[in-house]
């Protein structure tokens, strides 16, 4: 048996046993997301524009992650709308920055892996870098928007007459609670995986100056920063969407 299959089976069993139906659907969303990621690469390799692919695939990934993980309808809907808004804002930041910083494709450190490969493949690697950056932020955005939306919808359920101003304060305060740990999830998630590269840098005595201008290092750091920006923006945006929903719900009640 293949290691991936066995580990996958164990994860599925654990998620079902511990998480019940929610766990099973969450596992399903993981599989869908994998399929979508692979589809994104294949589509780009077929020549579809990277921006369009990231927008479409990103929209679907957010939907799977949010609607498969959250049962509360108001929370899920709010989280999804907010996550979409944040994704679009992030694209507007990521696109110009990637064209400015030019940390796309490969670097000298990759030479060994690139042996015998043709690099002139006619696909813009800057576009690929934009796609990578957008897709890597989606998980964090979805998680944060769900946390905020779930917290706020619970407050609305318990105090239906809560004021908009009060909701803002609550939203930001939930955000403050999650930001510290979310920050750590991102930091470890990105840098844990790059231990080998850092050992390479230190072992070959790269100077501080060459590290902070190194293509791979810069590409990785800006991905963490984009995710972080995404999570920070998610807090006020989700709160704002929730207040709109809440106000609409209230005016409906009055009619």
């Amino acid at each position: 048996m293949n290691t991936i299959t066995v580990l996958g089976a164990i994860l599925f069993i654990l998620m079902t046993v511990i998480g019940g139906k929610t766990g099973a659907t969450a596992f399903l969303s993981l599989i869908f997301n994998f399929g979508l990621l692979f589809l994104a690469v294949v589509l780009i390799s077929w020549g579809f524009p990277a921006m369009g692919v990231s927008l479409v695939i990103g929209t679907i990934i957010l939907a799977f992650t949010i609607f498969f993980g959250e049962d509360n309808e108001l929370a899920a809907k709010t989280a999804y709308v907010a996550a979409l808004i944040v994704m679009v804002v992030l694209i507007l930041i990521i696109f110009p920055v990637e064209h400015w910083i030019m940390a796309q494709g490969f670097s000298l450190e990759d030479s060994e892996d690139l042996e015998g490969m043709s690099l002139t493949i006619g696909v813009s690697f800057v576009g690929v870098a934009v796609t990578e950056a957008i897709l890597s932020t989606l998980g964090a955005i979805a998680e944060a928007s769900i946390a905020i939306a779930a917290g706020l919808s619970e407050i609305i359920e318990q105090h239906p007459q809560v004021t908009t101003k009060r909701l803002y304060v609550d939203g930001i305060s939930i955000g403050k609670q999650i930001i510290g740990t979310t920050f750590n999830t991102l930091f470890f998630g990105f840098f844990g995986g790059f231990l080998a590269l850092f050992i390479w840098f230190s072992g070959l005595h790269y100077s501080f100056g060459s590290v902070i201008n190194n293509k791979i290092f810069v590409a990785e750091v800006i991905m963490v920063l984009f995710s972080l920006i995404g999570v920070i923006l998610t807090v006020p945006v989700t709160t704002w969407v929730m207040t709109l929903e809440h106000r609409r719900g209230q005016s409906k009640l009055k009619d």
């Binding site: 969450a26 990934i61 995986g193």
Partner: peptide, 23 residues
């Protein structure tokens, strides 16, 4: 409700890195 989104966070981070080479 926490586990699904959280696993997806890491999954997307780990996978996005492999994009350029896969392409």
């Amino acid at each position: 409700s926490i586990m699904g989104p959280l696993i997806n966070v890491l999954f997307l981070i780990f996978m996005a890195d492999t994009f350029a080479m896969t392409l």
